[in-house]
Design a protein around this nucleic acid. Structure first.
Lengths: 112, 112
DNA sequence: TTTTATGCATAAGAAAATTAGGTATATTTG
DNA sequence: CAAATATACCTAATTTTCTTATGCATAAAA
């Protein structure tokens, strides 16, 4: 994370959302995809990403599958059933956060 | 914070935004105003709020004025000049975060 | 041949919350 | 009147989630 500030707590939601698209992904791939999708605005640091992936795995939201490609290891992650449900929750939570904070920084005069 | 999840890092922005409206405010008033503006969705905890106010003051973004009203103390906070500038920065930062993360959770197919 | 890219990882520290208290006065309610 | 709730401040311990700084290894590019 460097250019655009990433509010703490949103990384997990990003990971779950990307994996909810259906395809399994490995860590490095996630950093590159986020960079591309945000036109370089958001850079996921490895120091944040890998511990986050390990925690999601430990919590039973992700399954891992190790593969060797071009003589280098890749750890492919995919959502478990629990992870699929949690991805829905996290996305709703994010939407609600955005609506809520918009209500403060861009309020309707009647409630200000 | 309890109902809607507050992403870590947004509290300072909320405080600065409310004070940027012009009127000085005291801590308890901020918690009540946020509750009202978000229809109870967002509850600022005192354990987060007061340390945040103290830090903003220590950083020279807020000025304090203590008043006794109904035999109870109130600490009124208002933006310094530096605080006014920072409130603009923080709001831009928040807008950018929202746009950026919308680009991930609600992507244009061309970039996905 | 040195740098950059790919791919994983962890450890120390900082930031910013949560949780759980504490003090005190004023008002409302049973 | 007593007890609960609202108003108003505070802090300390802990947890969560990052950043920063490393480390290792292979492949490709400069």
């Amino acid at each position: 994370m460097s250019n655009a500030k990433l509010y703490k707590g949103s990384l997990t939601t990003i990971i779950l959302k990307l994996l909810a698209e259906g395809d399994k992904m490995y860590g490095y791939e996630i950093t590159q995809k986020v960079k591309k999708m945000t036109q370089g605005e958001l850079k996921i640091t490895e120091g944040a990403l890998y511990p986050a992936l390990h925690k999601l795995e430990a919590d039973g939201l992700l399954d891992v599958e190790v593969k060797k490609v071009d003589n280098r290891l890749r750890k492919y992650y995919k959502l478990t059933e629990k992870g699929t449900k949690e991805s829905v929750n996290k996305l709703e939570e994010l939407e609600r956060f955005i609506e809520t904070i918009q209500g403060i920084v861009n309020p309707k005069p009647s409630l200000g």
